[in-house]
């Protein structure tokens, strides 16, 4: 039990990763697929942030009385990744709006049916 708890962050990462991927594959609704994609990307944020934490460490701001600092690098990286994620979802949703205008539906199978004929 304690072993599982010790790696809790990674278990949550795997759960989000798999859950997100499952939604992308299983759902036909294009907005839901994007929600899945967003969850899928979120798992990566956790994966990066977790190993950066040093137990007992504080925020990496130099101040008297503190010796142990957490690694700030993953936060910077993930800040960038979050921006990329937001841009991706925004563009995805914009495309869904345009698809709805062009096809009148955002269900994957209905769109495919209309494309076939």
């Amino acid at each position: 039990m304690t072993e599982i708890l010790a790696d809790l962050n990674y278990w949550v990462t795997i759960f989000l990763l798999m859950g997100g991927l499952y939604i992308i594959v299983a759902h036909g609704n294009m907005v839901k697929k994007l929600v899945g994609l967003s969850i899928f990307q979120t798992s990566v944020y956790l994966l990066f942030i977790s190993p950066g934490k040093v137990l007992g460490g504080t925020a990496p701001i130099i101040a008297p009385g503190f010796e142990l600092y957490s690694n700030p690098l993953p936060h910077v990286l993930i800040l960038t990744a979050i921006v990329v994620g937001v841009a991706t979802i925004a563009l995805g949703l914009a495309l869904v709006v345009r698809i709805h205008e062009a096809y009148g539906t955002i269900e994957d199978d209905e769109v495919q049916e209309m494309e076939a004929d």
Partner: peptide, 20 residues
């Protein structure tokens, strides 16, 4: 539009795998 959407989904999954 649907081609771009599909590429967006698959491309992002690919890029996320790379970043993992």
């Amino acid at each position: 539009l649907t081609a771009a959407y599909q590429y967006l989904i698959m491309g992002t999954v690919g890029a996320t795998f790379i970043v993992i």
